[in-house]
Write a protein that binds this DNA or RNA. Structure first.
Lengths: 150, 150
DNA sequence: TTCGTATACTTGCGTGAGCAAGCAGCAAAT
DNA sequence: ATTTGCTGCTTGCTCACGCAAGTATACGAA
């Protein structure tokens, strides 16, 4: 009989939560979640983006980015300056503290990432990346159809 | 410079959300989320489990299972009968409607799953499964260390 | 100019998740 | 029988997410 364990989507969820929880534990001392880290990292990589661009780069939707930025702002890690050229938009910059925390936590993340794939050969990594690209493309394709459509 | 896109954990999150959202769209007509489906599927596979066992099998924590079961109960898909041998526990059974919905949605899920991996050879699938097992094992290992511990 | 559409962001609602604390019932030791 | 500790479940808090609706601004067309 068909079981959730047979489903790629289910397996992805399980593994994602395990990897993410482990990273969360490693970041605990910095009061930063994995998702917050990814946004901070993005913001430091290219300063002065608006929220839409951050959403695209982190592959999150805009409401999620808004809320994560609220948290980061509350923690004093970012600044929102309104865009004089487009008064609907904010340009996002890290604070000094934000830059510092991002640097420190990026070391943690890199270490964590290496640990997750430490027993992979370069070929295995390339095959995994290729598999990810294929699944992503399949998920984005239309025509999967909510019901029987063969 | 290091970017979130370079991180396996980040990539897992992106791909998981895409696959999951696609399935959610396909299940919309059945008023069932992917996570709810996985629990229903588990419940129908082995009826009369207690919540702890469901949590183990679906790899979720107990509070999460409690809340998903609340939703499923509200929708009339499951029954909670208290265990006469252990009055702390509930034994969980699908209702007739629950069994029916699970059967129908399992067809959708299987179809969705095939679509996600349709261009994979059996060898590629085996390599992917192997990669998942390795990452999972790495994530579960202790000693990753919240900080510098080499 | 003004009208209409598109866009950047926010807010509200519901779901799922982790963690910690609480409650009730079990079970073993005294 | 009482105590002590463990276990099954629930609740509260916070975060992340998707979707839909709302607000303010931008911009092109009339």
């Amino acid at each position: 009989m068909y079981q959730p364990q047979d489903s790629i989507g289910f397996q992805l969820g399980v593994i994602y939560r395990k990897v993410s929880n482990r990273l969360a534990a490693n970041l605990k001392d910095y009061d930063l979640t994995p998702e917050q880290w990814s946004v901070m990292c993005c913001i430091c990589f290219k300063e002065g983006m608006n929220q839409k661009e951050i959403a695209e780069r982190t592959v999150k939707d805009q409401p999620t980015v808004t809320r994560i930025l609220n948290v980061l702002h509350r923690k004093g890690l970012i600044m929102r300056s309104s865009d004089r050229a487009d008064r609907r938009a904010y340009l996002i910059y890290p604070t000094e503290k934000g830059r510092q925390v991002t640097e420190e936590t990026s070391v943690i993340e890199r270490h964590h990432n290496s640990a997750m794939i430490e027993d992979f050969t370069p070929e295995q990594l390339e095959l995994l990346a290729e598999a990810f690209r294929k699944i992503e493309r399949n998920a984005e394709r239309y025509g999967d159809g909510p019901a029987i459509e063969s």
